[in-house]
Design a protein around this nucleic acid. Structure first.
Lengths: 167, 167
DNA sequence: CGGCATCCACATAGATACTG
DNA sequence: CAGTATCTATGTGGATGCCG
């Protein structure tokens, strides 16, 4: 993904460029700090300097969001966790063809990113519950928007034919 | 993404399930047609049957949206095209480290999906212009939402450390 | 139950070189 | 200008099997 494939986004920090020949033309990207400054792009799309980048940068908000939901199955896991805490096995039951390996990977990543927290119960049988954190719940509007946009695309170009997406 | 990466989504059509043992428990996914029916998930996340799936299905709106923006560099290309029509070389100038091969791939996919249209001018020197279609413009709110969510994630979990996302 | 360790297959990104 | 053609490296998903 991928997704991602990873997927993509946009950023820019301070004076990171050293490979490109950038110092003779100040035409665009006027070395913005962090606030709303004219970047040459629509300010709705690029509200601050972190989006004014010429390549995929991990610190770019778009990249951060894509990384959070990126990877096959991830949005489905998030969807199921939006309904409340789930155990490993419950998640597997909800997604029967998802292998334990991939589910583990997804949960580890989501936990590393702070979207999910793991709670092991000391009782018997031992149970591990996964639940969304505040950060995890913060992606719900994004999932809704993905659904909405996908619906719009299906209505606009009603062909799409067999899929061959990168991720 | 890889956005991509592959990434993920959710769907369901008519009576597609034949692998799973589904006919003794009508607990969830009550064989919904297309309208708003109780699926066991939050109706905000799963407004219709296409989102009530147990695996990534290409017809699911979420998958469709992710496929549209999926793949490294794709959101950056879309961002630049949001500013108006661009030639191949102009796009390359805006994204200097993006190889011609990948840019070509992205543009072909975006065109196949109906998000971008190509216009060759008969004049000399020959110029090819890429511009967004109505469907392409329809993804702008999604890009905005990605930026917003990414910003929220950066504020919430201000660690994220070096990236190791799948896509 | 809740995973981890392997191995495999394939898709994709990137670099490089060439062309109508 | 606007791509195409290769080749390679890596990553990511899936299957299978084992373990505390």
């Amino acid at each position: 993904m991928r997704v991602l494939p990873r997927v993509v986004g946009e950023c820019e920090s301070g004076g990171v460029e050293r490979v490109v020949d950038s110092h003779a033309r100040s035409e665009s990207v006027p070395h913005v700090g962090h606030q709303t400054v004219s970047t040459g792009w629509d300010p709705v799309l690029v509200p601050d300097g972190r989006g004014a980048t010429r390549r995929p940068e991990p610190e770019c908000p778009v990249e951060v969001a894509l990384a959070a939901i990126g990877g096959r199955w991830t949005t489905l896991v998030l969807r199921d966790l939006m309904g409340g805490a789930r155990s490993f096995t419950e998640l597997q039951r909800g997604l029967p063809t998802l292998s334990a390996k991939v589910l583990t990977e997804r949960l580890v990543r989501l936990e590393q990113r702070g979207l999910v927290e793991r709670a092991r119960s000391a009782s018997f049988p031992p149970r591990t519950l996964y639940r969304l954190t505040a950060a995890g719940r913060a992606v719900e509007p994004l999932l809704v928007e993905l659904y909405r946009t996908g619906t719009a695309l299906l209505e606009t170009s009603l062909d799409v034919s067999p899929d061959d997406s990168p991720r």
